[in-house]
Simulated assay, not measured.
Amino acid sequence: MPKARKIEDEALMEHLGTAFKDFGFEGTSLAMLSEAAGITKSSLYHRFPAGKNQIALEVLYSTRRFLDAEVFPVLLGDASPELRMKSFVASLNTIYASGADSCLLNMLAPPRGQPDECGQEIAAIFNQFLKAIAAVARASGCPAAEARRRAERTLIEIQGSLVLARGIGDSSVFSRMLTRLPTIVLGSHHQP
């Protein structure tokens, strides 16, 4: 009979992801990951024999599963573009703890010019976001090229506000960005 795990996979990924969000890939040690997860380093190595790189990749896979289940279906659903944006904004507020959390995708991104598996997964997730957000803009009547620009601007706004909120210690920057998102994606005739 297999030995019972002391921490479930979903909770483990959440704890490990939090450590990476707080300290980034380079700043997070195995000791920090072990402490965040509440398990010994040997247990961490048992679950992730390839070490920190494998842990980061597994956290990204877990993030992708969450987004595929909870966020992308909202953006690509049948609801009105306005309702999709309302749900998306609420999801972002929860995911990023009202701007207090950093973006895991940013904190795990490899250095420029040094692509790796994490970088490939991050690129795939960002591209999926671009397509899904552009689909909402298209559903509001926006032409394809403009929808893509609006999707890019949306991701720039999200990422920029998270960096600025962390940098100046003021999460209200993120909150103000969230109020702008529907207008960015849907256009000015769709005022919140």
Rank of each mutant, 00 (worst) to 15 (best):
S102P: 00
E14H: 13
V74G: 06
M32E: 06
A97N: 12
E10A: 15
A97P: 00
K41A: 05
C118L: 07
A147E: 09
R166T: 08
V185R: 01
K21G: 02
I184H: 00
L181V: 13
M13V: 03
A109G: 02
K6G: 15
F174D: 07
R153S: 14
F126T: 10
T28Y: 08
R138Q: 13
H46E: 09
A36T: 04
R148N: 08
T63I: 07
F72C: 03
I122Y: 10
M32W: 08
R47F: 10
Q191T: 00
R180S: 12
E146M: 02
I122Q: 02
G51M: 08
A147P: 09
S80D: 02
K21I: 11
C103I: 12
S98E: 15
K52Y: 01
D68S: 08
L162F: 05
S175G: 13
S98Q: 14
K131Y: 11
P182S: 05
P73E: 01
R65N: 07
A165T: 05
S98P: 00
E157N: 11
A135D: 11
E117S: 11
D170H: 13
S34D: 03
Y96C: 02
D170S: 04
R47D: 00
F88D: 01
E8I: 07
E58L: 07
R138C: 08
A37W: 12
S171H: 14
T183W: 00
F72T: 04
E157M: 15
A123W: 13
I55W: 05
F23I: 03
R5V: 06
F72P: 05
R84F: 06
L12F: 07
G24S: 15
A11W: 08
E35A: 14
S91T: 10
G119P: 02
A137D: 00
A137F: 06
L76G: 03
G51C: 06
V89S: 03
A31K: 15
N127F: 10
A50S: 12
E26L: 09
A147Q: 02
S175K: 14
F48G: 00
G169V: 03
E157I: 15
E82M: 03
F72W: 15
P143M: 01
